[in-house]
């Protein structure tokens, strides 16, 4: 059921211009490995305060996820408006859930 007037598949032309093959993906892989190793290391180093380690772990997790979503799952490429919206909205709902549970457990 071809649809007249649908957005033309010109994506491939745009992508051709800046597409360097697997380079960005391999860089993402390397970043992920490094961040993972750092996270495991943070837990093994004695003498760090719990709050500091937690913040570090959360930061590295978020960075790794951003880079995987952006590069490996193509969110940085055009034509992903709704996909980004889906992730943002889902993330927002999760933020409410996590923040309210954390607030409730630790402050009430």
């Amino acid at each position: 059921m071809q649809h007249v007037g649908q957005a033309p598949s010109g994506d491939h032309i745009k992508r051709r211009k800046g597409h360097e093959g697997p380079r960005n993906h391999l860089i993402t892989f390397a970043i992920s490995i490094i961040l993972t190793i750092l996270a495991f290391a943070a837990v093994s180093v004695p003498g760090l305060s719990k709050g500091f380690v937690y913040s570090l772990l959360v930061l590295m997790a978020i960075l790794q996820v951003l880079v995987q979503l952006g590069v490996w799952m193509h969110l940085k490429d055009r034509g992903h408006f709704w996909a980004i919206l889906a992730m943002l909205f889902g993330g927002l709902v999760v933020l409410y859930a996590v923040v309210s549970v954390a607030y409730w457990i630790w402050f009430i």
Partner: peptide, 15 residues
């Protein structure tokens, strides 16, 4: 992608 949004909420609630 919409389904993945739902999965984010599913795992997020479990988290």
């Amino acid at each position: 992608w919409v389904f993945l949004g739902a999965e984010v909420v599913i795992f997020g609630t479990l988290f």
